Amino acid sequence: MSDDPDLDSAYALKTPADSVRLYRAWADSYDRDFASANHYVLPAEVARHFALIGGHGPVLDVGAGTGLCAEALSRRGIGPVDGVDISPQMLDTARTKGVYRDLFVGNILEPLQTSQVYQGAVSSGTFTNGHVGPDGLDPVLAVMRQGGWIVVSVNALHYAATGFEAKIKALGDTITDLSHTEVSIYGPDATGPHAKDTAFMVAFRKA
């Protein structure tokens, strides 16, 4: 894996330590050199979907990064929003935007260190190649209120390769109102090898 902060390096991550190292280097330039340059629309799509199905706060932004999804939620009047991410440096950037109630460092594959219980949860770009697999859903469900909406984007190739379908089936009657919607990750002006990549917007409620 290269330490250079770009999408190919992100997709090649293998361990939490890899993620910490890459996103430390990427935090200051992520919004400009990745999100804006690649017409990254997925955070706005997640926020839009959460709003359309009636999601509301308090919301946990899972894999908050630099706060792009929380910014989109804020524009829709949804809050308060807390954020968790494995990278302290990415959270430092997110903190400057003034859209979070609280931010904390955490590995999403482990129990989340928060005393809060949330009415909603969103995640954009975290359940993807080299990042978090389907087992990351369990810690999120553990901090949700009954009836709360969860909307996570899952890279379409990652969904097929890492067992999301089996995991969601295994959740059984612990979730309800399940839906899948395929969306573009990047806008129509995006170029490059990943320009046409898609994600599944997976939405469900905690039963």
Rank of each mutant, 00 (worst) to 15 (best):
L109H: 10
A199N: 09
H180V: 09
G192P: 13
A72D: 11
D31R: 02
I185G: 03
S9W: 12
S9P: 01
A199L: 02
Q116P: 07
A190T: 08
D3N: 15
D92G: 03
G125Q: 00
S153W: 00
D177H: 15
A190C: 11
D135A: 14
H49Y: 11
T93Y: 01
G120M: 03
T114Q: 04
T114S: 06
G77I: 05
P43A: 06
S153F: 03
G77W: 02
T114F: 01
T191W: 12
L13P: 14
A190D: 11
W149A: 03
P193W: 06
F204K: 02
E45V: 03
Y23I: 14
S115L: 03
D18W: 14
W26N: 10
A35M: 13
V140E: 02
G65D: 11
S179I: 10
A160D: 05
L73H: 05
A64D: 00
D197T: 08
F34L: 06
D33L: 02
D6Y: 04
T96S: 15
R76Y: 07
E110W: 07
E182R: 15
L73R: 07
Q113N: 11
G163Y: 12
A207C: 02
S74V: 00
D173T: 12
Y159S: 02
G65M: 08
V41D: 06
A142D: 15
D8P: 14
G67S: 03
E165V: 04
R145L: 07
V59M: 04
Y186Q: 10
S2V: 03
T96F: 03
A195S: 15
I175K: 06
D82A: 08
V202Y: 11
V140Y: 07
K167T: 10
R101I: 07
I175M: 08
I185W: 00
D135F: 01
I53K: 06
T181S: 10
I78S: 02
A161E: 14
I86G: 00
N107M: 05
R48S: 05
L171N: 14
K14W: 12
F200V: 02
P58W: 07
L68W: 01
L109I: 14
T66G: 08
M144Y: 05
I150K: 09
P43L: 05
T162D: 08
L112F: 03
L112D: 14
A27Q: 10
V202P: 13
V99P: 09
T66R: 05
V59I: 05
R24S: 15
M90Y: 12
A166D: 14
M201R: 14
K169P: 11
P188M: 13
G57Y: 03
G136V: 05
D138R: 01
F34H: 13
H39D: 09
A142T: 02
A195W: 10
L73G: 01
Y118M: 04
H131R: 04
L68C: 05
G148N: 01
D31G: 09
G54S: 04
W26L: 09
E110L: 10
V62F: 08
A207Y: 06
S2Q: 13
L157N: 04
V152D: 09
V154R: 00
T174G: 13
R95K: 13
A190Y: 12
